[in-house]
Nucleic acid binder design. Structure first.
Length: 350
DNA sequence: AACTCGTGGGA
DNA sequence: TTCCCAAGAGT
């Protein structure tokens, strides 16, 4: 068998399987490049089942580029609330605005599209191939896992430079008649068959082409170095209620973790007395006796919060610092609240 | 290159 | 519980 024939048979086996067996997902019902762009950004580091309801709401509210381009940021963040990695939403909006004003559409040019904020190598290839049929590589974690097994590639896929190796491999293999089905087929295969643990090789449409399967090494690949575990940080929350039933909320800084989101007053200490001193000083107010409401751990990718939340009354509102305000529980829904804050809110029965 | 940036699910 | 992870990108 000649090498070129092997590649062609691989392509046909993969795209044929994909066209027959692909899951019925919302973004596979549209050819709207803008909607496909939205789906790819939402799917960055996020599971399909999590994205589905967000995608439905988001594309309904911001049905075309103009709607999103000029939407109020608060509304944008409210639609993204709970999905995580919030800079994705802000970058998406600014890039949709730029594309709309510059091209009037999603540019069908990888060079132009890839320059937009929030569009990295993966998203560039995914949107260009799926929306426009352009043969560009869309290398995500699935593709690196699948190809490392098929081609017996032993480079560490945790290392940034390794991705380029896989992009070159994809360009050698990609189906130029249907780059969309090829790229999505690779990812679909990784998602449902060629899984990280216990891959279902007996159901695999391309196992005849798989080096790892032939050598019985499918569980050994890919090679991936582990990341170091996260550091823990104490977070003491002092939820403060005024005599009229309003609660003090603070808005986090515009940059960094949970940027711009709202939370109950919080101090980075394990000592509740110290937290009261810090927060009462910050807002120039007097805090009554505190009562513990809830204690939990919140795990981020790179750090862990050990949260202890207390509630207390204040006789008057003092002098609130910048980026803070008093709100009734019904008004909380106007604010963008990160999950840790939602947990505290639930514990307080608000 | 290494670090930052969320969340929820599964083994 | 603990760990890894899931269609990554910005700095």
């Amino acid at each position: 068998m000649k090498t070129s024939d092997w590649k062609q048979e691989f392509r046909e086996a993969l795209t044929g399987w994909y066209r027959e067996e692909k899951r019925d997902l919302p973004w596979r019902h549209t050819r709207n490049p803008y909607h496909i762009w939205i789906s790819e950004v939402m799917l960055q580091q996020t599971r399909v089942d999590t994205v589905i309801p967000y995608y439905a709401r988001f594309t309904e509210r911001f049905s075309d580029m103009k709607e999103l381009a000029y939407a109020p940021e608060e509304e944008l963040m409210k639609m993204w609330e709970g999905l995580g990695y919030y800079s994705r939403a802000r970058n998406l909006q600014s890039s949709v605005r730029e594309a709309y004003e510059t091209y009037g559409e999603v540019p069908a040019d990888p060079e132009k599209f890839g320059k937009l904020k929030g569009v990295g190598p993966y998203t560039e290839g995914a949107v260009m191939s799926i929306a426009y049929g352009i043969p560009a590589p869309a290398v995500d974690g699935n593709v690196m896992r699948v190809l490392s097994r098929i081609l017996l590639i032993e480079e560490d896929i945790a290392k940034p430079k390794t991705r380029r190796l896989f992009e070159e491999a994809v360009m050698e293999l990609i189906d130029r008649e249907d780059p969309s089905s090829f790229n999505q087929g690779m990812m679909e295969l990784g998602a449902v068959i060629c899984t990280p643990r216990r891959p279902k090789c007996l159901l695999c449409p391309v196992r005849d082409f798989c080096g790892a399967y032939h050598e019985g090494r499918e569980e050994e690949l890919p090679v991936k170095s582990k990341k170091k575990k996260q550091q823990s940080f104490p977070q003491t929350v002092i939820a403060l209620r005024d005599p009229e039933g309003r609660w003090l909320m603070e808005q986090r800084p515009e940059e960094g973790l949970l940027a711009g989101m709202w939370q109950f007053p919080t101090a980075e200490t394990a000592d509740p007395e110290e937290a009261v001193r810090i927060i009462s000083g910050r807002h120039r107010l007097t805090v009554g006796p505190i009562e513990e409401a809830v204690r939990f751990r919140h795990v981020f990718t790179h750090r862990i919060w050990e949260v202890t939340a207390y509630a207390a009354s204040v006789p008057d509102r003092g002098t609130p610092a910048d980026r803070s305000g008093w709100f009734r529980p019904e008004e909380f829904d106007m604010l963008t609240l990160p999950n840790p804050t939602k947990k505290v809110r639930a514990a307080l029965g608000l």
